[in-house]
Design a protein around this nucleic acid. Structure first.
Lengths: 260, 260
DNA sequence: GATCTGTCTTCCGTCACGTGGAAGCGCGGT
DNA sequence: ACCGCGCTTCCACGTGACGGAAGACAGATC
């Protein structure tokens, strides 16, 4: 096979050709709606060009225009997204288990996959009140400090692990592990025990337990429970539940459709 | 404003320009993964062209290539989709309420929006067992026979209603309403009562109650409970719960971010 | 009312860049 | 050895994307 088309584990590349894609890339979690001028400025093309590009995308359904004349990502893209690996199978398989976990614990339940050297949050169940701005569905975060990230990193290809361990490890709190040597030990422990605990590494008041979701030996995602303002010991008691759910999800995935 | 760029209520159009988009359009719920040749055939371009297009999309993250060499929609598209109206706000606001509804009823709970003359299912909560193939997240269906569709159609712009009423009304079961005059009466009743009941109109064993989700007077989505193999009367008892949840969701939407 | 500043829209001549034919590679079947 | 199939790379050609320019429109400021 040995293809140039493989999306390498280490993301990002030159903008290449299609300006259509550049227009789509202008939208982000921070700026989910844009005006035509904003798009033109962000992409770096003249207004007339942006106008044509946006027109094409809008006709196709990739973008929508709301009443104020602002553009946003359209339904068509959302529908396509429903065909991507996170949504197709993984989400469907995981939701019931996540629901059960939530019913029992009434804590945040998270489902995430790895993309390059980042976690991407695929699903989250939380109470009506628990407004957790840090992790949003579709959001990204660095791998090392999060519970799911530790699990995903521990089972990532060696080349990814080395890249993360080599790069600077950002400290989000006092407790964030920033020493590569120590992180390496933690990852080994995660592999050994089959679970990870992130103790206030992301924010001062959040502790999480995470377990890998495996299908035929390969870790494809991670599941976690996040508790705010609790002791690591108490949180650790959730571990068996999380692991059981992760196991169940893996079993469903393996039995259903194709999962690389 | 009066723009050509407005995505009209009545979907579909000429394929226009960008072949990149045509490649993305080749993926569907029925065929979520494709080989390069399949893409070339579907789009109707020579293999070399498809190769370049797919390469561009893959580099960007819009497509991914799995171990077998087959292509699928990539994480990047899924992330963008998380910025679309269904996911951004609506989903977040609705999930807790849907979870509550499910906890109480243990029946299928559905969230849907309208796109042109079709329903698009945005979210669904179902038990681990209830495998309902007919409605999948990201899936589409005709408006008239479904509960959510009746609600959305009843509150759609007159031009959409006329278009649907004029077009042929497909009969999915013996009970599907296919008479325009009768459908018109039902829609009026839906508007009056603030809820819709679809009695075995989609399949012989499914009945659903649906309620509109309104924000500042505009119906932006619909919520429903679907019950299999039950009498309409029994199902109707769920109506207050559904309506209360829909009301709650609308309130959240109105209070939070911008909702056209 | 005049002017300015910002937004969006349309038009059209030029030339980069996407296009697709052709050739080559690797594999599995006969 | 031969063929068929799917994939990859290369490159000369000609089309369709690009963006400058001009103008419509709305809101603010004087």
């Amino acid at each position: 096979m040995t293809s140039h088309l493989r999306a390498g584990p280490l993301r990002a590349r030159r903008t290449a050709g299609g300006k259509l894609l550049a227009v789509l890339a202008a939208f982000s979690r921070e700026r989910p709606t844009l005006t035509l001028s904003e798009i033109a400025r962000t992409v770096g093309v003249p207004l007339s060009t942006a106008h044509r590009l946006v027109g094409e995308l809008t006709r196709w359904g990739a973008l929508e225009r709301d009443a104020d004349g602002r553009f946003r990502i359209g339904l068509r893209i959302w529908e396509l997204g429903a065909l991507a690996p996170p949504a197709l199978g993984l989400r469907e398989a995981a939701l019931p288990f996540m629901g059960d976990l939530y019913e029992v614990t009434h804590q945040n339940v998270q489902l995430a996959v790895r993309d390059g050297d980042e976690v991407v949050f695929v699903e989250r169940i939380a109470g009506r009140d628990a407004v957790n701005v840090l992790t949003q569905v579709g959001g990204r975060f660095a791998l090392p400090p999060t519970g799911v990230g530790l699990v995903l990193l521990a089972h990532a290809p060696a080349e990814v692990q080395e890249h993360v361990l080599a790069g600077p490890l950002t400290a989000y709190t006092q407790h964030t592990i920033t020493d590569a040597r120590q992180l390496r030990r933690v990852l080994a422990e995660v592999r050994r025990s089959g679970m990870a605990v992130s103790d206030r590494q992301v924010t001062e008041d959040a502790v999480s337990v995470a377990a890998p979701i495996e299908v035929r030996g390969a870790v494809v995602a991670a599941l976690s429970i996040v508790v705010r303002g609790s002791s690591p010991a108490a949180v650790r008691s959730y571990a068996p539940g999380v692991r059981a759910a992760a196991l169940g999800i893996g079993r469903i995935l393996a039995s259903t459709s194709t999962w690389s």
